[in-house]
């Protein structure tokens, strides 16, 4: 097979994405199930997890597993960071940290939507990808801390007044709505419905992207690799068709669950006492 794909994610990074995908969907289903418990839809969601009380247990434990995964990811970052090239490496094009170029590319990209300017020459990570990545840090901190407060109220109210739980509940809820809305609408659209990625961008599952497509969408990245002579080393072959089918099945199942929850939540929102 020809090596016509370029490596983009390591197996561990792909595993992290699968981990986040599965835990996020479970947290969404159990959280929405309890929020919408007054409706048939919410009762059904809770039933899947064994009822109103069990859904809470699942929500707490999967939440804790998520936080553990998050801590492991931070350790992974510390381990994988290029400390020799520090601090320049942190602000280079391979880093996920925001750069001034991201802001410039954002405005150029928007201008391109209206046909005003050329499409920006993206490097390895686009600004929207960096936003998605860092949003998880913010979300984990906000939802994780408020979630732990509510999961262990006797401990948390030793350190803060009990009415802090009223506040924690609303912060948890609104941040969760933001996270689900962003994933089920924006992240899904960018990964599946754009013409460039339709019907599914399987880079995060397969670990590689088509070289010509990457040359089109991320010319700075490919150009940089060509210049430094690293491109040939980064090329890989595509996976077996069977495996690709599996990626599609997993991806579409996730989409189906997400869209089901998005529509269900929107339809049933007026029926709930908030």
């Amino acid at each position: 097979m020809t090596k016509n794909r370029i490596k983009r994610f390591t197996p561990l990074q792909r595993l992290s994405h699968i981990f986040l995908m599965v835990t996020f969907l479970i947290q969404s289903a159990t959280g929405l199930g309890r929020t919408f418990m007054e409706t048939k839809w919410g009762q059904w969601l809770c039933w899947v997890f064994g009822g109103y009380d069990t859904a809470r247990e699942v929500h707490i434990w999967v939440g804790i597993i998520m936080l553990c995964g998050f801590v492991l990811h931070v350790l992974y970052l510390l381990f994988k960071a290029d400390w020799k090239g520090f601090p320049q490496s942190l602000f280079g094009p391979d880093s996920m940290l925001p750069r001034p170029a991201d802001i410039r590319e954002f405005f150029q990209h928007v201008a391109w939507f209206f046909g005003r300017r050329k499409q920006p020459e993206f490097d390895r990570w686009g600004y929207w990808e960096k936003f998605d990545y860092w949003a998880v840090f913010w979300g984990m901190a906000i939802i994780g801390i408020t979630g732990l407060m509510m999961a262990y109220p006797f401990t948390s109210t030793k350190w803060m007044p009990g009415w802090g739980l009223n506040v924690a509940f609303w912060v948890h809820r609104i941040e969760a709505i933001l996270a689900m809305g962003h994933i089920f609408i924006i992240h899904f659209f960018v990964g599946h419905l754009r013409r460039h990625t339709f019907p599914m961008d399987h880079a995060m599952f397969e670990g590689s992207v088509d070289l010509d497509a990457a040359r089109e969408e991320r010319p700075s990245w490919i150009g940089r690799l060509e210049e430094s002579g690293q491109l040939d080393g980064a090329l890989v072959t595509g996976v077996q068709p069977g495996l690709k089918t599996l990626y599609y099945i997993v991806g579409f199942i996730a989409i189906a669950i997400g869209v089901f929850m998005l529509i269900g939540a929107l339809v049933n929102a007026p029926l709930v006492i908030w």
Binding site: N4, I186, V190
Partner: peptide
Amino acid sequence: TFLLFLPHTVLWGIRELFVRKKTSGG
């Protein structure tokens, strides 16, 4: 967040309808 990214996503989707999509087939 939604005010920024919802229109951004929709406009992006529309704009991409007007560009070619290259694959390794050449």
